[in-house]
């Protein structure tokens, strides 16, 4: 069985490691902090965060940046739990 997309240990890849440093952008800090605030209110836990990341379609996972994965996970888990209605973030963005 092939490992799931997130299970990267030992994957055949010879790409060099991009060692450039990058300070977290405001929105990345905010994404991290939103997870922190959700953890504090027990609306989500770390295992759910991971499940939400790991359930991304493999191609989206491959191309998403780190905090894009966190964002996807928050939306997935919170929609599952009924905290968000389906499509609610999209509707907010459209206004």
């Amino acid at each position: 069985m092939d490992p799931a997309v997130h299970d990267r240990g030992g994957w055949p890849i010879d790409a060099p490691i991009d060692r450039s440093e990058h300070e977290l952008a405001d929105w990345e800090l905010l994404a991290d902090a939103l997870v922190g605030a959700l953890l504090r209110r027990r609306l989500m836990n770390v295992d759910e965060l991971r499940r939400g990341i790991e359930s991304m379609p493999p191609e989206d996972y491959e191309h998403a940046s780190y905090y894009e994965r966190w964002l996807h996970s928050m939306e997935t888990i919170l929609t599952e739990k009924g905290v968000l209605e389906p499509g609610e973030v999209d509707r907010r963005l459209a206004t």
């Binding site: 939103l34 605030a37 959700l38 940046s65 964002l71 963005l93």
Partner: peptide, 14 residues
């Protein structure tokens, strides 16, 4: 990236 506005919208909603 688009995710930036999306994260802010999510914060607003929550």
């Amino acid at each position: 990236p688009a995710a930036a506005a999306r994260v802010r919208a999510l914060e607003e909603l929550l």
